[in-house]
Amino acid sequence: MPSEPSQSGTNGQGRRPDRAAHSAALLVAMLATWLLLSGYFEAFLLTLGAMSCVLVVAIARRMDVIDRESFPIHLTARLLTYWPWLLKEIWLAAVDVTKRVLSPRMPISPTLIDLEATQRSDLGQVIYANSITLTPGTYTIRIHENRILVHALSREGAESLAGGDMDRRVTALEAG
């Protein structure tokens, strides 16, 4: 995948300039998926696969669904450093929730908390909200105007989220 295509749009709205790069990336990704999933390497079948990939890209372009938001290749490099951190958080949170579920007294304290999302683009906010949801023990109920309503299984979980570490990381991810 191309790591960092040059882009002029700053805030997720600049769609036209990088459409060709996104279409190409989508085509490459689909060809790779087709090859890996089918496992056939005969000329006839390869041609059919390539044709169907080109057809799908053409349809996607016509539907106007190829843009920075649906296919964020500009984030690829930074996502690779964000995901390991997220996986670590998921692991720690899962162990915590497991302890709470299994302990006889069940020390849970369900909490609703309203957080501010400091990301500028919709995509950044969605990444933040989905990161919260992926981490066991907290999930997003809704996003409205930069405010995220979160349900936490324990007060400690809500407090650690309110500390804003994840929020800062996602904002850095989005802005670079």
Binding site: W91, V97, P136
Partner: peptide, 21 residues
């Protein structure tokens, strides 16, 4: 946890463990 936890909102946390870890 899906069986043990007290209400729908808390049960979602438990289902989340299965989906991720």
């Amino acid at each position: 946890g899906l069986v043990r936890l007290p209400d729908v909102y808390t049960r979602i946390h438990s289902a989340g463990i299965v989906d991720t870890v």
